[in-house]
Amino acid sequence: MFIYQRKILTTLTEEEFRAGYRKAQLIDVREPKEYEGGHILGARNIPLSQMKMRIREVRPDQPVYIYCQNTMRSGRAAQMLKRKGYTQLYQLKGGFKQWGGKIRTKN
């Protein structure tokens, strides 16, 4: 499972992630409550639990930067996207809890 995820998904350090995510689709796959508690600036919330239904919201012709709280859910989301033909899949190493950049919260 983990080895397969490494094949379909590139794990980026925070620095690499930060360098590329503005030119990509940034997707937070955590649940709405987690997202509202704080998310990376510019991220869209498509929870893993809704990914199957909302997959059309993700463009296959652009890189997809995914993150969750640690990395479990982003790996699962990447597997779903890969099965639908998405190829440019990236995740944040260590997930949101390791993120040191700007965040936005919903008050």
Rank of each mutant, 00 (worst) to 15 (best):
R54Y: 04
S74Q: 06
K23S: 10
Y21H: 13
I55L: 09
R22I: 02
K93V: 02
K7E: 10
M80H: 05
I40S: 02
S49K: 07
L89T: 12
T105L: 03
F96K: 06
G101N: 13
T71D: 10
A19M: 13
L41H: 07
G75Y: 07
F2Q: 07
A19L: 12
L89C: 11
I27A: 03
Q79M: 14
P32W: 09
L12M: 08
L9W: 05
A77M: 13
T13F: 00
Q98N: 05
P32M: 13
Q79V: 12
Y65G: 04
L89W: 14
Q88W: 11
R104M: 14
F17S: 05
N107V: 15
L41F: 09
Y67H: 15
V29I: 05
R56Q: 11
K106V: 05
T13Y: 02
A78W: 10
Q98I: 02
F17C: 09
L89P: 11
L26E: 06
F96W: 05
T87D: 14
Q25L: 04
G94A: 00
M51L: 15
Y4N: 11
F96P: 06
Y21I: 00
R56V: 06
M72D: 06
Q25I: 02
A78T: 08
I27D: 09
G20H: 05
P63H: 11
K23H: 13
Q25M: 06
G100Y: 04
Y90A: 00
Q79E: 12
G38L: 02
Q62K: 14
M53G: 13
M72I: 03
L81K: 12
T13P: 01
Y21L: 02
G37W: 06
L81R: 10
K33I: 02
P60C: 15
T71S: 09
R104A: 12
R73Y: 01
Q25R: 07
M53I: 15
S49I: 06
A43P: 09
Y65W: 10
G38K: 00
E31P: 01
I40M: 02
D61P: 12
K93M: 01
T87W: 13
I3T: 15
R59N: 11
E57G: 10
R104T: 13
T71N: 10
P32H: 07
P60S: 15
I103F: 02
V29L: 00
Q79S: 11
T105D: 04
K33E: 09
A77H: 12
Y35M: 00
A77D: 13
R104V: 13
I66M: 12
A77I: 10
Q62G: 08
R30E: 01
R18D: 07
Q98W: 05
G100V: 04
I3P: 11
V29N: 00
H39G: 05
K102Y: 03
R73L: 11
Y35N: 04
V29T: 01
V29A: 00
Y90M: 00
Y21Q: 07
A77T: 15
G42W: 00
L92V: 03
M51S: 12
K97P: 10
R44W: 00
G94S: 03
V29R: 01
V29D: 03
F96T: 03
K52Y: 07
R22F: 01
